[in-house]
């Protein structure tokens, strides 16, 4: 359920390195289910840099809003502009076409991130 090539945060973001020094960042399937129908995402501008753990945007559903934090330090190089007209992509395919931003990683991947197995375990505990 949680792709093995991605790493995860306790706040339910994922980061998926693409092998060329960049990585895609989004929220997990579990996170989008908890939120309900996503209606809007607020993303940073290309060129902005954030430290690991910094808030870089928000995801809104009808009844709630979630702040999203960057799993690993880096500079924003691309936004998923499709989400402007299709926020539902996050609900339909959080790990695929529902990605939020692409970053250029600053250094190594944050070592505190969880792997897919550890994340799945966290989710199991939270939703018990």
């Amino acid at each position: 359920m949680y792709p093995a090539d991605a790493k995860y945060t306790k706040n339910h973001e994922f980061i998926r390195p693409l092998g060329d020094g960049t990585a895609l960042v989004g929220i997990t399937t579990y996170a989008q289910e908890a939120m309900g129908d996503v209606v809007f995402v607020d993303l940073p501008e290309v060129g902005e840099s954030f430290e690991a753990g910094a808030e870089f945007g928000t995801v809104e559903s009808v009844k709630t809003v979630a702040e999203i934090f960057l799993p690993s330090s880096g500079e924003v190089v691309e936004l998923n502009t499709e989400l402007e007209s299709h926020p539902e992509f996050i609900n339909e395919d959080a790990f695929g076409k529902g990605w939020l931003i692409k970053i250029r990683l600053a250094g190594d991947l944050n070592p505190e991130l969880l792997d897919a197995t550890a994340y799945a375990q966290l989710v199991a505990e939270e939703s018990h």
């Binding site: 559903s61 009808v62 702040e67």
Partner: peptide
């Protein structure tokens, strides 16, 4: 609509 802007959802933000 667009209620996520408002105090009852976003509170201090």
């Amino acid at each position: 609509t667009l209620t996520a802007r408002e105090q009852h959802i976003r509170r201090d933000k």
